[in-house]
Simulated scan of single mutants.
Amino acid sequence: IFQVFDDPRSATLNTVLDGQRFSKQSETKIMVRDVGALPLLPTAHSVELSEQPTQEWLDLWWAVDGRGGGGELAIAREILTGCPSLYALVRDDDG
Results as ranks from 00 to 15, higher is better:
40 L>D: 14
94 D>K: 12
18 D>H: 03
93 D>V: 08
86 L>V: 13
59 D>P: 01
50 S>A: 14
81 T>R: 03
82 G>L: 05
18 D>G: 04
76 A>H: 00
84 P>L: 02
4 V>M: 12
35 V>L: 13
71 G>K: 06
44 A>G: 14
27 E>M: 05
58 L>F: 14
57 W>C: 01
1 I>Y: 10
92 D>M: 03
61 W>Q: 02
7 D>F: 04
80 L>T: 07
28 T>K: 10
5 F>N: 12
35 V>F: 11
67 R>Y: 11
63 A>P: 01
61 W>P: 00
2 F>I: 00
16 V>D: 14
1 I>W: 12
17 L>H: 12
11 A>I: 07
81 T>W: 00
29 K>A: 13
47 V>D: 06
18 D>T: 05
93 D>N: 10
28 T>S: 11
8 P>C: 02
89 L>N: 01
67 R>S: 09
84 P>T: 01
63 A>L: 14
52 Q>R: 13
29 K>W: 12
76 A>N: 01
7 D>E: 12
34 D>V: 02
94 D>P: 00
27 E>G: 00
39 P>C: 07
75 I>M: 12
22 F>Q: 12
64 V>P: 00
57 W>S: 01
51 E>Q: 10
92 D>Y: 04
90 V>H: 03
58 L>A: 14
5 F>T: 10
4 V>Q: 13
37 A>T: 08
10 S>N: 12
95 G>T: 04
87 Y>M: 05
55 Q>F: 01
86 L>S: 13
10 S>H: 05
80 L>A: 13
35 V>K: 15
